[in-house]
């Protein structure tokens, strides 16, 4: 099970080290992209959006159609994020906002019902067949080679996009007027509303933003994923592992956790190929037991 020689050989060879380290960063940034929406919504609204994967799927499918119609990958990504945001706002207004104060189980059930409805709707609109967007023409180029290592340009673009998302989300929540109001409203909605601020609109906007991030992640990753109804389920588990390890609600924490998981996966596939998933979940259990607030999460006093 343990292949230490392979791992040590990799550390000794520059080409392997560069390929695997860049792979770790790439996997990590893709994980962060899909987890950022969950983290954002939980961090502010304290709602666990179990329907996150459905918005990822909506983003990917809408991007597929937009790419088919326009041939532009960037338009496709924008369309995916926009439609996911609109559906997210509708979902928040019509369903989730009514169970904000209910227990977690009620929120889980509402989200799960939404996921099943979305899966069937996708099947009706786009069919049950798997779809592939294909790599956009501008990225259909040979990979960069650096000291024997291989790095595809498309993944460099995705890593930059993920870092931009991390930076923009952090700025928006911590320093913008919008961010301050939403955080204040989440602490004490009544107090904020007596100041003449329409709290539900802010909550809906933030929820929509989280869903837009999920949709954008789906759209960005669509060229390298096969699109199938139910595709959101596989990323939902990854998103929650990242969120739990990073600290529920912490964007820098999610970024750090995603990087740690990415590097574990890339080097683990050489050193302990049969225990890569086991290692990720072991990390999650260790965090839950010894540092329940996560790597960079704030300790919650009860």
């Amino acid at each position: 099970m343990l292949d230490l020689p392979a791992l040590l050989n990799c550390f000794a060879a520059t080409s392997c080290l560069i390929t695997q380290a860049s792979t770790g960063v790439i996997i990590g940034m893709l994980l962060f992209l899909v987890a950022s929406g969950v983290t954002l919504i939980f961090g502010v609204l304290h709602v666990v959006n179990f329907a996150h994967g459905a918005f990822y799927m909506i983003g990917a499918y809408v991007a597929w159609s937009a790419y088919d119609a326009t041939g532009s990958y960037y338009v496709a990504v924008a369309a995916g994020a926009l439609v996911a945001a609109v559906v997210g706002i509708l979902f928040e207004r019509l369903a989730i906002s009514r169970v904000y104060k209910e227990n977690l189980l009620m929120q889980l059930l509402v989200c799960y019902a939404f996921v099943l409805i979305c899966d069937d709707a996708v099947k009706i609109i786009w069919g049950a067949e798997y779809l592939a967007m294909g790599i956009p023409a501008e990225f259909r180029v040979p990979p960069f080679r650096f000291a024997g290592g291989v790095i595809p340009p498309f993944y460099i673009f995705l890593v930059c996009a993920a870092l931009a998302v991390a930076f923009a989300s952090l700025m928006l929540i911590r320093y913008s007027h919008f961010g301050k109001i939403v955080r204040a409203a989440a602490q004490n909605a009544t107090m904020v509303s007596v100041l003449g601020i329409r709290v539900p609109i802010y909550f809906a906007a933030l929820f929509g933003l989280g869903c837009a991030l999920a949709g954008m992640a789906g759209a960005l990753a669509a060229p390298v994923r096969s699109l199938t109804p139910g595709m959101g389920l596989s990323i939902l588990i990854d998103s929650f592992i990242v969120t739990v390890i990073g600290g529920m609600g912490s964007i820098p924490g999610a970024l750090l956790a995603a990087l740690v998981l990415g590097l574990t996966r890339s080097f683990g596939s050489l050193g302990f190929p049969l225990f890569v998933d086991g290692a990720t979940f072991t990390m999650m259990v260790a965090i839950l037991v010894f540092r329940p607030q996560g790597l960079l999460g704030e300790r919650v006093t009860r």
Partner: peptide, 21 residues
């Protein structure tokens, strides 16, 4: 060498670079 991705795994990057190595 062998690489064994899980069924329905969304990201194969680690398996691909493993094969490249």
């Amino acid at each position: 060498g062998e690489s064994w991705p899980k069924a329905f795994q969304p990201d194969y990057t680690e398996n691909i670079t493993n094969v490249l190595n």
